[in-house]
């Protein structure tokens, strides 16, 4: 599903440049539940952004669903994101003036689905995250955990191949963290590839494979107990 070969990325800082990713090789197959661990500055967010087509890499090859990602323009990237990827962000990134239901329906708007259909689908997904009753509330009327569940419903609504979660529990307390992780596990059980970035060991432990990153290189890549238990 995701295949990365010798990926390099640096950011210019003034005259110098900061080499963030120094040759990453990573292969994630369909249906995997992978977490990327690392302290801040390890390059894990950069990796996710490149995988999520939100940013471009400098060197190396990246294949998404077998397709080589190269010379992407914004339009093509946007279409691929809409088709293959679902995002869950640490800060939820819901649009503040839209209701929960409208937020979930938004990716379907960009897919070109008509309003009636998209609101129906969106309500269905809100139901799956147990927020059907909150459909017409604005984000600021929801708790952190509820917001993240709305964001997850939004990530899932286009039936993406891969769900990318950037510190999905970073802004949540432990109880809500568990409910969000349960939700991600459910998604993975249904066959979707889930790619989580975290710095919390407990969160990583709930995934099936942990890739540890330090200073822009992979230092370990192993299956977890959860994976072995299956």
């Amino acid at each position: 599903m995701i295949k990365i070969e010798q990926l390099h990325k640096s950011y210019p800082i003034g005259k110098d440049s900061l080499h963030v990713l120094k040759g990453i090789d990573l292969h994630i197959k369909e249906g995997e539940f992978v977490s990327i661990m690392g302290s801040s500055g390890s390059g894990k967010s950069t990796l996710l952004n490149i995988v999520g087509l939100l940013d471009v890499h400098d060197e190396g090859n990246y294949y998404l669903n077998g397709q080589l990602i190269k010379d992407m323009n914004e339009k093509k990237a946007a279409q691929l994101r809409n088709k293959f990827l679902g995002f869950v962000f640490q800060s939820f990134n819901l649009i503040s003036y839209k209701t929960a239901l409208e937020n979930v329906a938004l990716p379907l708007y960009y897919k070109g689905i008509n309003r009636k259909e998209r609101l129906k689908i969106a309500l269905d997904y809100l139901d799956q995250v147990e927020l059907k009753d909150w459909a017409n509330h604005l984000p600021n009327e929801l708790s952190g955990g509820q917001k993240q569940r709305v964001a997850i419903a939004r990530a899932l609504v286009t039936k993406p191949k891969v769900v990318l979660a950037d510190e999905p529990t970073g802004a949540l307390d432990s109880t809500t963290t568990d409910s969000v992780m349960d939700l991600l596990k459910d998604i993975n059980d249904k066959g979707m590839t889930v790619f989580v970035i975290t710095h919390e060991e407990e969160v990583a432990a709930q995934t099936k494979r942990i890739v540890r990153l330090k200073d822009g290189v992979i230092i370990s890549d192993e299956l977890t107990k959860a994976a072995k238990a299956v």
Partner: peptide
């Protein structure tokens, strides 16, 4: 800008 970023992440092409 942030809203546009979210929209783009969700699949909005620049022209839209």
């Amino acid at each position: 800008t942030k809203e546009f970023g979210i929209r783009k992440a969700l699949g909005a092409v620049p022209s839209s």
